[in-house]
Write a protein that binds this DNA or RNA. Sequence first.
DNA 1: AACTCAGTTCCAAATAATGGAACTAAATGG
DNA 2: CCATTTAGTTCCATTATTTGGAACTGAGTT
Lengths: 263, 263
Amino acid sequence: MATEQKDETVGTGTLGKTMAVLEAVALAERPMRFTDILAVSGQPRGTLHRQLTHLVQEGLLELRADHVYLPGLRLLKLASASWARNEFRAVAAPFLEALHAQTGETVHLGVLRGREIIYLDKVESRQAVRMNSQIGNASPVYCTGVGKAALSTLDDAALEVILSGIEFRRFTPQTLVDRAALLGELEAVRRSGVAFDREEHEPGIRCVAAPVCDAARSLVAGISVTGPAYRVEQEKLEAWVPLVRQAAGGIKNELDARLGPQR
Amino acid sequence: MATEQKDETVGTGTLGKTMAVLEAVALAERPMRFTDILAVSGQPRGTLHRQLTHLVQEGLLELRADHVYLPGLRLLKLASASWARNEFRAVAAPFLEALHAQTGETVHLGVLRGREIIYLDKVESRQAVRMNSQIGNASPVYCTGVGKAALSTLDDAALEVILSGIEFRRFTPQTLVDRAALLGELEAVRRSGVAFDREEHEPGIRCVAAPVCDAARSLVAGISVTGPAYRVEQEKLEAWVPLVRQAAGGIKNELDARLGPQR
DNA sequence: AACTCAGTTCCAAATAATGGAACTAAATGG
DNA sequence: CCATTTAGTTCCATTATTTGGAACTGAGTT
C-alpha cells in the first residue's frame, strides 16, 4: 500500500511539488495517464488534478485526447534558449570541434549537476541516425568518463555529499558498484588527469575524459572522446590522453580569462 | 511610470507568475540581474526575490556569483526527455531524412503552439557550425514557411484567435506585415498545398513548406526545405513542391494509421 | 440495469504567497 | 573618507491559493 517515495524536492513551497509532478511525467519512460501519475506522486486526487491542469495551461505538459499526459513544447522552447545562450558551451565549442577533428570520434561536453552529468554539447561526424540525442541527457556520475573526471576535482566534503546519495546500479559487468572502488578510481584520475570509461555504462562504448572546472568550483564539468570498443582500443584512448588534456586546459584558460576581468 | 505589461499567463495561480519570471529570464537576450527582472516582471521586490530563490533551488535558474540569473540545467534535462519521447517527431523523422536526401538542403519540422512555430527537428548535412541550433527555437507564424503552411489548415475561428493577437514585425523587406496580405497568402497556400518563404524572415533564406496535421486539428504542424537564396532559386523551390507534399502526406498517413487503432 | 473504474468538481480548513517597509551591502561621488 | 545613492535581502501581518476529503460524472463491463 505505502508507495515508498521520498522526493528530494521540498522547501520551495508549491513550486517544488509541481515540478516534481512535471518531472515525473516528462521523464517517464512510457506515456502516463492520471492514475499512473497519482500512484507515483503521492498527492491527493484533487490536488494532483489541479496541478496537472495548471501545468497543461502553462504549456509545460500536454493532455492528449486519450487522457495521456505528455511533455509540452514550452519545455523545448525554454531549453533551446538556455542552450543557445550558455556561455560555457560557447567557450568550449571550438575546443570540442578541434578535438573531434583530431580524433575523428564523438566528443562530449558534460557538466555536473547534483549527482548527475548533464550533457551540454556534442560533436560528431556522422549525424546519420539521431541528431542531438545526447544533449540534455542526464547520466550517472559514477560510470561515465565525464562524471569521474568531474568528481576528481571536488574536495572531500563536496564529494561526500554526492557519494552519500548515490545508489549504485550495475549497467555492465565493468560498472563500479561500490564506493571504495569509485574512490580508488578517482585517486587514479587525480594522478593522471584523465578518466577512462571502460564500457562501464554502455557495453561496447569506451571513452577518455578530462575535467574542466573554474577556480571557485562553481562550475564542474568535463569533456570526453567516445567511441565503439571495436574501433577504439585502450591504446588509442591512451594516445588521445594528451589531446584531451590539452583541450580541457584550453577551455579552462579561456574561462579564467573571461571570468578574470569582471572580478 | 506604468510599465505597460500584460502577461498572457494568468489563471494558473502562482505557477503562471513564476513561469512568467522564468521565461523572462530564460528568453532574455542578455543576462539579467535582479533589478532588470524587477523592471519587466511588475512584481513587488520581496515577491520577486522569493520566486527567483525558488526557481534557483529547483534548478530552473542559476544564480552566478556576480548576481546574474541564468537558465538552469534542469530545463535542458526536461526538454531532452520531452524531445526524445516525442512520438510525432519519431514518426516524421524518416520522412525528413528522405526529403533531405532528395533535396540536399536543410529540412525542418515545426509545430504550431499559440502564435509561434516551435521547431521540433531538423536534418542537415554540414553540421560544421552549430549543432542543433534550431531545435526548440520559436519563430513567428506569419513569416515562416512552416508557419504559413500550418495556418492554412485552420478554420476561420481558430485562425481568428491567432491573427487577432499577432503583432506584425518587419524582419525583411518581404515580410508580410498586415492581416490582409497574410490572409491572401493563406488562400494561395490552401489552393496549392504549399507555402513559400521568400526571404520574409531572414534575408537570404528561402523555403518551401507543406502542412501536416491530424484529423482533429489537435496537432498542427509543417515541414520545410530551406536553403540560401544564392543557391536555391525560386525554380528549384517549385521543383521541390511535389517532394515536400509527398513527405507531408506520408507523415499524415503514418499518423492516421497510428492514431486510428487506439480510437 | 447495476457495477466498476477513471477522471473531474467542490468547498471549508490549512498553508503558502503577497507586498510594503525596514534593513544591509556594495557602488558612486563630492 | 564620509555621505549618498543604488542594489539586493529579510521580515511579517494580511491575503489569496493550495489542500485534500468527499461527492459527482460518465464511460466501459458484466
